[in-house]
Amino acid sequence: MPSPRFPIPQGTLDMLILQILSLEPAHGYGIAQRLEQISRSVVQVNQGSLYPALHRLQQKGWLRAEWKKSEIGRDAKFYCLTPAGRKQLAVEKDSWARLSGAVNLIFEEGSR
């Protein structure tokens, strides 16, 4: 019986993927596992929506992909961040911080 979790807010999946890939290149399953860890605790990610997001980010030029041997010795498609992707991540982090800061401000004002 899974515990009640938030559905992931619209648009944040892209940011999460960029964040995960900013640490090290990973293949789809690796990203999924990483998302799984996050989602087990906080939010719910539909595994199926991962691949359209990856292809979209790649088409925008934020990700680069190449086939490499994975940890189990099979070929897997590894994604890594491009410089443009790194810039985009910074932008998204920044706007996220401003948005959540603003929301916090409103909440604090309300509770005062």
Binding site: H27, G28, Y29, A32, Y51, I72, D75, A76, K77
Partner: peptide, 14 residues
Amino acid sequence: RGLNREIQYHFDRR
């Protein structure tokens, strides 16, 4: 073909 391989990998690992 690329997408199929990619998803197949995911599926097998899962």
